Computed example of a mutant assay.
Amino acid sequence: MSTSPLPETVTVTIDGTPSQAWAGQSVTAALVTAGIWPLRRNPVDGRLRGPFCGMGVCLECEVTLNGRPGSRSCTAHVTDGMDIRTHTEPLPTVAHG
């Protein structure tokens, strides 16, 4: 009986903090493994949102990858040195006059 080799461990940066992940795993899986579930805020009501469909349709998993906003973390794959930015900071308020 043969065993499969373990995936290569690589370093990624999540919201400015270095973290370990498996090369080739989905970015969503790497984020959830790192204990990060909310990935962005809903632009309409400001509620925190996390991965939902897991196949790139719902857009709830959008993050910024290597400076590219609007990346779907569930369909993107981890690479060494990847910079991942979630969008969970409070949304700016607009003053109404």
Rank of each mutant, 00 (worst) to 15 (best):
T28A: 02
A29Q: 05
T86V: 05
R40S: 01
H77M: 09
E60M: 06
L65D: 08
G81W: 12
N66S: 14
S71A: 15
G70L: 15
E60P: 00
A23P: 00
G54F: 07
M1Q: 14
E89K: 14
P18W: 12
L91K: 13
Q20P: 01
E62V: 14
V12A: 06
L48W: 11
R41L: 03
S71E: 14
D80K: 12
C74M: 06
L65I: 15
A76G: 02
S26I: 01
E62R: 13
R68D: 15
H77Q: 12
T13Q: 04
P51E: 00
D15Y: 09
L91H: 10
V78D: 02
L91R: 11
T3C: 12
A34N: 10
L39F: 03
I14G: 07
Q20A: 15
D15L: 06
T88A: 12
P5V: 05
G54C: 07
P43D: 00
E60R: 11
L59Q: 14
P18T: 07
T17L: 10
A21L: 01
R41V: 05
T11P: 10
A34Q: 04
V32K: 09
T9K: 07
S2P: 14
G70M: 13
L48Q: 13
D80T: 10
R47C: 05
R85Y: 07
G46P: 09
M55K: 01
D15T: 03
A95V: 10
V12Y: 03
T64W: 09
G46Y: 05
W22A: 07
E8N: 02
V63I: 12
R49L: 10
L65H: 02
R49N: 01
A34V: 08
T64I: 09
I14Q: 13
G50S: 09
H77E: 08
C61T: 01
G70A: 12
W37T: 06
S26V: 09
R47T: 14
T33A: 14
N66Y: 06
P92R: 15
V32Y: 11
T13P: 12
E60V: 02
T17V: 14
R40F: 04
G50A: 04
L59G: 03
T17Q: 11
T88V: 07
I36Y: 05
M55G: 05
A76E: 11
S71R: 15
G46H: 05
G54N: 03
C61E: 08
S71T: 15
T9N: 02
V63G: 00
S2W: 10
R85M: 07
P69F: 06
P90A: 15
I14M: 09
S2N: 11
T79H: 13
H87R: 07
T17F: 08
W37N: 01
P92S: 08
T75S: 06
Q20K: 15
T28S: 13
F52Q: 09
E8C: 01
R41E: 01
G24F: 11
C74Y: 14
N66G: 13
G97V: 04
T17M: 10
W37V: 04
G46Q: 10
H87W: 10
P7R: 04
D80N: 13
W37S: 04
V12S: 03
I36L: 03
P51K: 01
E89T: 10
R47I: 05
D45Q: 03
D15R: 11
S71G: 11
P38A: 02
D83H: 08
